[in-house]
Every structure is written in structure tokens, then in C-alpha cells.
């Protein structure tokens, strides 16, 4: 079996797994609607009484509402459970089975996440997007080039997110329970990726730090591409930055995986 079909089968299995959970599928769609609703109303309230076209930290109300809706729709695509699944594998001891297989574990996990993401984009993001579009106003991007940049940037965001999740998943080798850490990661990323609010809202010292760190690739950068807010002369360097972080984190995961896995064999499974 060729390498492509091996990893292809991971993608396929992820599809089947996602389809098996019917209740979660429906509630999942509803959840995204709730999320968008909460932030939609918060932003409405923030802009209440302000004149039309008023900007806060560089965003008008229609821009902000689009930012929130598109942000959550994109999240339904890039979100992944790699850390949670690695935790399960370590807890149940099944991880040792994977160590025996002639496949790269990290690649397998990431391809599984790709499978889930492809599943989500077809069966989840589209219906979520349709429902949100019906309930809340979303403006189209200024040009199709902006949309393409958004799509490319989101794909890099997905890779960044998956790599971070893989790194967090490695902690399962070191701690008895990583539930708390995973919850903290979840909240930190929602905030510092710019999903909850654009990073331009942060106080200066924190904003500077977040400009350097990789989290902005996940939401803030793609959404600014969508809104056409990235100046043309910066597009190249912004994408290069996303690229560098995504693959840097991937490489870090690869190196640290070998160390974590050797811990397992030392303990005797």
C-alpha cells in the first residue's frame, strides 16, 4: 500500500467516525449558532448609540459582525481534537499499538485531523455557515483575491492549531490528567488567536507580543484577509510568518514526540 493510501485511509476513517455521532453533529451546529449569537449581541451592545461608520480599534460594526460570524464558521473547520485523542490513547494504553505500526504517529494524527477538517468543511461548516448567514449579517470579502488569501491563511491556521494540539497532547505522557491544561489552552487560544476580539483591542504590550507569537495565524490574520484589511505590501511577509510558525511548530512536535515516546517504553507501557 502506498503512503498516500495509508494516510488516505486515516482521512476516510475520520470521516466515518464523525458521521457515527449523530447527536453531536446536530448539537454542534446549534453550538456555533449560540456562539455567534452571544458575540453578535455583545458587539451590538458595544456599538449601541454610536454613529454609523464609527470605528473601535479600527473596526466598524458591520465589519465586526462579519468578523465574528466568519471567525466562528472558520473555527468549525480548523478546530481539532488531537490533544484529547492522544490523551485517550495514553490513558488506555493503546498508544503502544501505534508505536508498533510503521507509520509516523504525528503525521497520522495530523492526517486524521485533516480528515475531520475536510468532513467539517463539507458537512459542518457549510450548514453552520448557511444557518448563520440566515440569522446574522455577513458581508462578502471585498474581492475574490481577499477570499483566496483568507482560505490559504486559514489552511495555515489549521496546521498551526493542529501542531499546537499535538504539542499539548504530548503532555499526556507527563501528567496524570491534562484536562485542566487542555481547557486552559482552549480558552487562551480563543482569546489570543483573535477569535473573541481582534488583537488590536489588546493593550499595547500584549498586542506586540501577540504579533510575534503564532496564535494570530489561527483567526486574526485570516479574518483580516477576509475583511481586506491587510495592506498589499505586507501580504507576503504575513503569509511567510504564518508559514514559518506552522512548520516550526510541526518540527518541534516531531522532535518532542521522540522524547515523549521514549518515556513510554522506559515505563514499560
Amino acid at each position: 500500500m502506498s503512503l498516500i493510501s495509508v494516510y488516505g485511509s486515516f482521512i476516510r476513517n475520520a470521516f466515518l467516525k464523525m458521521l457515527a455521532y449523530r447527536a453531536r453533529y446536530y448539537t454542534g451546529i446549534a453550538t456555533y449558532l449560540f456562539f455567534v449569537a452571544v458575540y453578535y449581541f455583545i458587539w451590538q451592545a458595544i456599538f449601541a448609540g454610536k454613529p454609523e461608520g464609527y470605528r473601535i480599534s479600527g473596526y466598524t460594526l458591520p465589519e465586526m459582525l462579519t468578523y465574528v460570524s466568519v471567525g466562528w464558521i472558520a473555527r468549525s473547520f480548523y478546530f481539532s481534537n488531537i490533544d484529547d485523542e492522544m490523551d485517550d490513547l495514553v490513558r488506555s494504553g493503546q498508544i503502544s499499538v501505534y508505536l508498533l505500526r510503521p507509520v509516523n504517529f504525528q503525521a497520522m494524527m495530523i492526517f486524521q485531523a485533516v480528515g475531520e477538517a475536510l468532513f467539517r468543511i463539507t458537512f459542518f461548516s457549510l450548514p453552520v455557515g448557511a444557518v448563520i448567514l440566515l440569522c446574522f449579517p455577513i458581508n462578502p470579502p471585498p474581492s475574490s483575491a481577499d477570499f483566496l488569501l483568507f482560505a490559504l491563511s486559514t489552511a495555515l491556521g489549521f496546521l498551526t492549531m493542529a501542531s499546537i494540539n499535538f504539542l499539548v497532547g504530548l503532555l499526556a505522557f507527563y501528567f496524570k490528567s491534562v484536562d485542566g491544561i487542555m481547557r486552559a489552552k482552549y480558552n487562551l487560544i480563543n482569546l489570543f488567536s483573535g477569535l473573541l476580539l481582534p488583537l488590536s483591542f489588546l493593550p499595547d504590550w500584549l498586542r506586540v507580543a501577540m504579533e510575534v507569537l503564532p496564535f494570530k495565524s489561527i483567526a486574526y490574520v485570516p479574518l483580516n484577509f477576509y475583511l481586506g484589511k491587510v495592506p498589499p505590501e505586507q501580504i507576503g511577509s504575513v503569509l511567510a510568518g504564518e508559514f514559518a510558525w506552522a512548520f516550526g511548530l510541526l518540527a518541534a512536535g516531531m522532535i518532542l514526540w521522540t522524547r515523549a515516546a521514549s518515556r513510554l517504553t522506559l515505563q514499560g507501557g
Binding site: 470521516f15 466515518l16 449523530r22
Partner: peptide
Amino acid sequence: KRSEGILGSFKDL
């Protein structure tokens, strides 16, 4: 009864 394949699973939804 679970249907087979991706299409079948989709139908099961």
C-alpha cells in the same frame, strides 16, 4: 443497522 461506507453513514445522519 449501520449502513456501509461514507455515503451510507451520511444517510444514517
